[in-house]
Structure formats: C-alpha cells, structure tokens
Design a protein around this nucleic acid. Structure first.
Ligand code: SF4
Ligand code: SF4
Lengths: 128, 128
DNA sequence: ATATAATAAGACTAATAAGGTCATGTAAGT
DNA sequence: ACTTACATGACCTTATTAGTCTTATTATAT
C-alpha cells in the first residue's frame, strides 16, 4: 500500500544513469540494465513509456540508445513517475457511491497534492 | 501504485459509522458491514486490527459489538490507516544496495512525511 | 446450566495487479 | 545485405490484496 512500483524505481534509476553519462553519446538499455542490475526486457518496456512521454529520446538502429530530452535539472521525479504510471491518485472511489458528499476524499486528494509537490520539487540533477 | 487499500478504506468508513451512532451502545460488525456495503467477514478481520491497536474497543458475547476507544476528534486518519496497514513507507529499498549513499530515498521519505502530516491533521470528527 | 449472539484468530481460496519474458517488427549505421 | 538496437504487444509468472470459512472464545439471557 502506497508503495512505489518497481517500474517507477527502475525508470528513475535508469534516467539517473543516463544523466551520469556524457550527454553526447546514447546509452544502450542493455548497459543500463546490467549496471543497474535490472531485468533488461522489463526496462525496455519502462523506457518506452518515458520516450512516449518525452522524458527521454531514443535513437534506433546500430549505435542507437537513449538520451535525455531535456537537461537533468528540468526533469522532475514527478515527471518520471507519472510518465511511467499515469496520473497519481490515492483513492479512485470505485467502491462507494457517496463520493460527492464524502469528506474523506478531499483528505486523500490533499495528501496526494502534498506528496506530488515534493516529487515536483526534486529533479534528476539533484538526485543524481 | 500509491493506492489506498480496501482494508484501509473499510476501516475508515467503519470507524466513521461507529462515530455516527450513539456512543452508549456497541455497534455490531454485521450492521456496519450491511450499511456500508462491505463484506462482513473481511470487515471483522480489519476491525480486529483496529482493536489490537487501541482504536476501537470490542465487547464480546451477546449484546456485544464495537465502540470507539477515544473521542472521534482524537482519532486521526493516520491512526486508522497505520493500525490497519502498519508503518507507511513509499520505498523499502530492498531492490538495491546503495541505500546509504542514495539521494532518492530522502525524496521518498520527505514525500511520505508530507503525506502523513495531512493524514495526521484530519480526524474522524471532521471527516464524519 | 444451556442456548444464543457476538467477537477472535488464523487457515484457506480467489481475484487482481505487478513484474517479467518473448516473439516479431522497424529503423539506422556499416 | 547484415547487424545492432529500439518498439510493440501478447503472453506468462509471481506477489499482493481481497475475501471466505472454520473453530474457538466470551458474555448475556433465560
Ligand atoms: S474516499 Fe469517500 S467517496 Fe471515496 S471511496 Fe472512500 S468513502 Fe467513498
Ligand atoms: S530509493 Fe535509492 S536506495 Fe532506495 S531502492 Fe531506490 S535507488 Fe535504491
């Protein structure tokens, strides 16, 4: 409950790894997987979501790999997590119908906001 | 990911329900389950954790049921959730070993703190 | 005393979600 | 052409959460 997913964790570590390398050369997913000790195929999938959301940029074919789309200081932890997991929500309120007059939902929403704030405040540069 | 469990949700709704009743009579779990539209046996299990953690008080036998152990305004959302789920943690860091020199863990811890703060600030009285 | 109405505890099963693998396709460099 | 690397989506496996049931315990009412 309230746990960061592996996908999220891997994405973050992967991006940090790329940031640690020379900006000029693309980094292979195989290298990242190996160095970060993460299942390669899984990381491929995670990275594809980062590409689709414009966090990283991919270069296909021989001498291909991944590069950051922006400067590390312009990529927040929040960006990465939501790119991988979609919009955050502590409580979807599928279960009950009184969502409109419910006084608990605002609490969850507030908690989520506070949490998101922290994730937005930290970027790859200061986390690397 | 980052989602409230059903157990947590049910616990909260259950306690709110008890709080809505006359303090003098114990409330049956069967009644709560029915009115809250929640699986009874499951709620029993959830409530037992609340009892063990001193949130509610149980009276066994005929005419038994549950009562709040304290005033609603002294029971926070945080109390209930942790009673049911144990201590919160966004990231256990089982996966990798560099936890000591890791700069991401503090971010998760900070996010958790902010979130916990909100849950601590809200009690059953103002959520009921 | 006994019947009954309630919670306590924990084993068990079912459902869902997360994590991981694989096969096939596409693009780029040599 | 051939090789290397990403793209995509189907598929399988594992872990976690949700839910059920059985047996025991405790208290009350008759
Ligand atoms: S937060 Fe409120 S509306 Fe949402 S599921 Fe819980 S009780 Fe229902
Ligand atoms: S937060 Fe840091 S120490 Fe924890 S799992 Fe992630 S990278 Fe490892």
């Amino acid at each position: 409950m309230f746990k960061l997913s592996r996908a999220g964790e891997y994405a973050l570590r992967g991006v940090v790894y790329i940031a640690s390398k020379n900006v000029d050369d693309a980094v292979h997913v195989a290298e990242i997987a190996k160095c970060q000790n993460v299942p390669e195929y899984f990381l491929v999938k995670v990275f594809s979501r980062l590409v689709r959301n414009g966090i990283i940029h991919s270069i296909r074919g021989n001498k291909g790999g991944f590069r950051l789309s922006k400067k590390p200081e312009n990529i927040s932890v929040y960006d990465i997590i939501t790119a991988v997991e979609g919009p955050l929500n502590l409580n979807d309120c599928f279960i009950c119908k009184n969502s409109s007059k419910c006084k608990m939902k605002p609490v969850w929403d507030e908690a989520k906001e506070k949490m998101m704030e922290v994730l937005k405040q930290h970027n790859i540069a200061d986390v690397a």
